[in-house]
Design a protein around this nucleic acid. Structure first.
Length: 888
RNA sequence: GGGCGAUUAGCUCAGCUGGUAGAGCAUCCGGUUUACAUCCGGAAGGUCGGCGGUUCGAUCCCGUCAUCGCCCACCA
């Protein structure tokens, strides 16, 4: 027997262990002949711990995977984690720091050992947390981006791209993080608004006494690296200065005044200082004018030997103060303005990044992007919601060279070796590089490997095929690539999706997935982005502890409407918890009433209208669910299930079943028991993808024919319900019954009839069909409308003092003599009349419109006529009711 | 500067191809009806941001304005 209350924590632990042990998550095996269905997980950082974004992302994927698995497909949810270069290195560095040492002190090899130790100890946390979410990943296939196999894939890809000329080394400005001392990509730079200053400096013009050119800057310290001043070629104010020189103060250098269209006459003074080594725009100007590039910073953004001696060794912000003070002392500060501007921060290091001139490895993203753009244009990969396509195109069509090298230790070391003269040999192994070098030099030489590692996203970009075994030719590659759908947030469209598209197309010749489903971001209840510093982070594990995993999953699914941010609060999850409780109690009711699933039961054989009706409703729910999930409308899927389970099955069907089960017609009782069990069983199946734990537990406990289940729900067959089971006549009949009960309840409540009080009902002037309906459902109408008798009669035979309820062609009269205030009843009827008349007016107006009749589809016109007839009939009935009331 | 999205009940939001606006929560009234108070029954609450247009008909399509949010680029 089911416990009185549902205990999620026990059920979740038990069921997950059973699933995992039974091998239910594993792809292949007996399913190897089935149609494959594949999702690769967006690999969480190995340093990560489960947050709400993960919870949503993985819940949605699990819903899709579980449904396809039940549909009999060879469902593979490929799990794994990402080595997360910077994040992981930082975590271990912090540990070292706490232990009083540092990365540089312990050395590269020992440091990497420490990172692997750390990974062995803590790297499994996130995957354990994933299990608590109910994620049905094939854990036997778990991968890590630094695994041997995946590393081999990375090396092969690098070498091939290099040999194809799609990876090259270049010296240019990069975004440099002075704290982490590595290059980072454009995407890892976050612009942040700050209050700052705009300084105007006067640079003395050489050869003209007391003549200055004024330049403005937000970064005074960079003036030490200035190698020109630029003015617009058409700017009359400066035309005669072009070609002259400026005596750069403090640095005591002579720099030219050049004409370049980059200088905007409308901005600042119209003259702009040019620091090619420390500004992306200036770099371009420098190239055009073949200016000297003076790099004044070292790797930690302290001033180096290229700066005047007085400034060497100073931090960039310290240098800024000194430069301003020294220029002020020289009387060369024209003015200072307050200004807010945005400055670039490294999103990991948290300090302002510095444009810095270094040698780095680049991938030719523009070339790789072409097929990736075409694939989306041609619909081979489709974004859902579709509008993300634009964002993808926007970025891909303006893509910049991708800086793929990082000056870190944790990551895939670049397979490039340098000979004594600096010649580079890019090969898949040191041995191959040595051979290649020997061929080049004519003798074996000592080679030095490039210290740098690759951007983490370089390996993540291979994820859809590297996890399946590439570069080896594996059966998994054959079966599961391309994968079916990628589910993720929009924040990594550029970082990850774009790269997977490029890499997948280049190396596999096919798109990595047919569909990209982009879900919203989760925010707190007030719509704020969750962040540790704001303290508004909601921990999914805490929600699971408090409300149960299924409650959280259901809630997330029901909020996952395409295209909008999700505001989450505990209250919402409580709603999901309530739903689980409701389901549990409905199952208890069924069990207590002997509603045991019968393997032999054929739903088409049901005779009772109530049973035929609920079976039809079930079919309708299954249809809605299928359509919703096919379209990735998770919210509609959840809502369909909620409405059916609670609003239809519990609120109406089980209530209808009570009198039937308490009656004495054994055939009806047996059929109702079987039907209830059948519907509940199928509801569990339909609910399973979203609420796997409670559905599995109930499935297990509500046994077929009293024996144990043949298969657990997780691999049970997905319902295939024939649309022929929908009985329109039964539907209409039950709609009539429900309407009658609702009408009576409403009147009772409005008239303040005590809920416990029973009363008689007279249905007057009803059609033969409705009289039959009334008779057929007499017991349940009496029960649910709280009646003590039901009678029928001719139209107009309303006993004095009755409340009169118009229900279709009939009047339901409730003799409430003594209980009813006549004036109150009268005003109720008057209100009803007014409502009906409004309706009639609207419809008559519409139908009087010749254009409407002529141009609207006949079907629509017909509908409107019908509405009008109904409204008029109702109006007439209400009129009669009023007259009778007046006649009392 | 370029792009995207949003504006619907007190709150949070659904409303997919234009044809009588929905849910959850909150509110109010009433409930020991033998599965469930994490519940049951009932009610109230909306000129669908403003203005134009297309259409027989607009919450839905188009234009425009307003407000809010996000992304990208730039910022001497």
């Amino acid at each position: 027997m089911l416990d009185k209350t549902y205990r999620p924590e026990e059920v979740e632990a038990k069921q997950y262990a059973q699933w995992e042990e039974s091998g239910a998550f594993a792809a292949g095996g007996q399913r190897s002949n089935a149609d494959p269905y594949t999702i690769v997980i967006p690999p969480p950082n190995v340093t990560g711990s489960l947050h709400m974004g993960h919870a949503l992302d993985y819940t949605l994927q699990d819903i899709l995977i579980r449904r396809e698995r039940m549909r009999g497909r060879d469902a593979l949810w490929q799990p794994g984690t990402d080595h997360a270069g910077i994040a992981t290195q930082m975590v271990v560095e912090r540990e070292l720091e706490a232990a009083g040492t540092s990365r540089k002190e312990v050395g590269r090899a020992a440091f990497l050992d420490k990172v692997w130790d750390w990974k062995a100890q803590y790297g499994g946390i996130i995957t354990q947390q994933l299990r608590r979410l109910g994620s049905s990943c094939d854990w036997s296939r778990e991968r890590f981006t630094m695994d041997e196999g995946l590393s081999r894939a990375v090396t092969k890809v690098f070498v091939e791209l290099y040999k194809q000329g799609l990876i090259y080394k270049d010296k240019r400005l990069v975004n440099w993080d002075p704290k982490l001392q590595t290059a980072i990509s454009d995407l890892e730079v976050q612009q942040t608004e700050v209050d700052g200053h705009l300084w105007y400096f006067n640079y003395p013009i050489e050869g003209i006494e007391n003549k200055y050119i004024t330049v403005a800057t937000t970064r005074p310290e960079t003036m030490l690296g200035d190698t020109a001043v630029a003015v617009h070629p058409d700017d009359d104010r400066y035309r005669d200065l072009v070609g002259k020189h400026v005596a750069l103060p403090l640095a005591n250098r002579r720099i030219p005044i050049v004409a370049d269209e980059y200088a905007d006459p409308a901005q600042g003074s119209g003259a702009v200082k040019i620091t090619p080594a420390h500004d992306f725009n200036d770099f371009e100007v420098g190239r055009r004018h073949e200016l000297e590039m003076v790099n004044i910073f070292d790797e930690s953004a302290r001033l180096n030997e290229n700066a005047p001696e007085a400034y060497r060794g100073l931090d960039r912000f310290e240098a800024r103060k000194r430069v301003v003070a020294d220029l002020e002392a020289l009387g060369l500060v024209d003015r200072v303005e307050q200004q807010t501007h945005s400055i670039p921060y490294g999103d990991r290091g948290g300090v302002p990044i510095e444009p810095f001139l270094t040698d780095q490895w680049y991938a030719d993203a523009a070339t790789l992007a072409k097929p990736a753009i075409a694939a989306v244009e041609e619909g081979r990969t489709r974004f859902v919601p579709e509008h993300w396509t634009k964002t993808y195109f926007e970025w891909m069509r303006n893509i910049q060279p991708w800086c793929i090298s990082r000056q870190l230790w944790w990551g895939h070391q670049i397979p490039a070796w340098y000979g004594p003269d600096g010649s580079v040999f890019v090969e898949e192994s040191e041995e191959a590089a040595a051979e290649s070098a020997a061929a080049h030099y004519g003798e074996r030489v000592t080679l030095t490997r490039d210290d740098d590692v690759l951007d983490t996203w370089f390996s993540s970009g291979l994820w859809p095929f590297s996890t399946l075994g590439w570069p080896d030719e594996t059966p998994e590659i054959e079966r599961h690539y391309p994968t079916d759908v990628l589910v993720t947030g929009f924040d990594i469209i550029f970082f990850w999706i774009a790269r997977m598209m490029m890499m997948g197309l280049h190396f596999m010749g096919e798109v990595p997935f047919h569909t990209v489903y982009i879900h919203a971001l989760i925010r707190d209840a007030r719509g704020q982005k969750m962040s540790k510093s704001k303290g508004n982070v909601i921990d999914p594990l805490e929600l699971i502890d408090e409300y149960g995993c299924d409650a959280l999953r259901f809630t997330l699914a029901s909020l996952a409407a395409p295209g909008r941010d999700i505001k989450l609060s505990g209250e919402r999850v409580a709603g999901g918890r309530n739903f689980a409780t409701k389901l549990w109690n409905a199952a208890r009711f069924c069990q207590l009433n002997g509603c045991v699933p019968q393997s032999e039961f054929d739903p088409a054989s049901a005779k009772e209208t109530v049973n035929r009706w609920i079976i039809g409703e079930l079919v309708g729910c299954a249809d809605q669910l299928t359509q919703a999930l096919d379209a990735y409308r998770f919210n509609e899927a959840a809502n369909a299930l909620y409405q059916f389970t609670w609003g239809t099955f519990c609120d109406w069907y089980l209530e209808f079943a009570k009198p039937l089960l308490a009656g004495d017609d054994e055939r009806v009782k047996a059929e109702t028991r079987s039907t209830a069990a059948f519907v509940l069983d199928h509801t569990l199946k339909l609910l399973h993808p979203i609420m796997p734990f409670i559905s599995e537990e109930l499935w297990e406990q509500l046994c077929v024919d009293g024996a144990a289940r043949e298969t657990p729900l997780i691999i049970a067959e997905w319902p295939q319900l024939d649309a022929a089971l929908i009985d329109r006549a039964a539907e209409a009949e039950m709609r009539w019954v429900v309407g009658l009960i609702q009408g009576i309840r409403s009147v009772r409540s409005e008239m303040n009839v005590p809920p416990a009080a029973k009363m008689p009902l007279l249905l007057l002037g009803a059609s033969a069909e409705n009289q039959e309906r009334l008779a057929a459902h007499r017991d349940l109408i009496m029960r649910l409308a709280r009646l003590d008798s039901i009678g029928t009669g001719a139209a107009g035979a309303v006993p004095p003092g009755s409340v009169q309820l118009v229900h279709d062609e009939a009047i339901a009269a409730l003799p409430l003599t003594g209980l009813v205030d006549i004036t109150q009843e009268k005003s109720r009827l008057v209100r009803e009349v007014a409502r009906a008349e409004d309706e009639i007016n609207k419809l008559e107006k519409k139908l009087a419109n010749k254009d409407f009749i002529a141009k609207a589809p006949a079907e629509v016109v017909e509908d409107q006529r019908e509405y009008l007839n109904e409204a008029q009939a109702q109006r007439a009935k209400l009129g009669e009711a009023l007259e009778r009331l007046a006649g009392v």
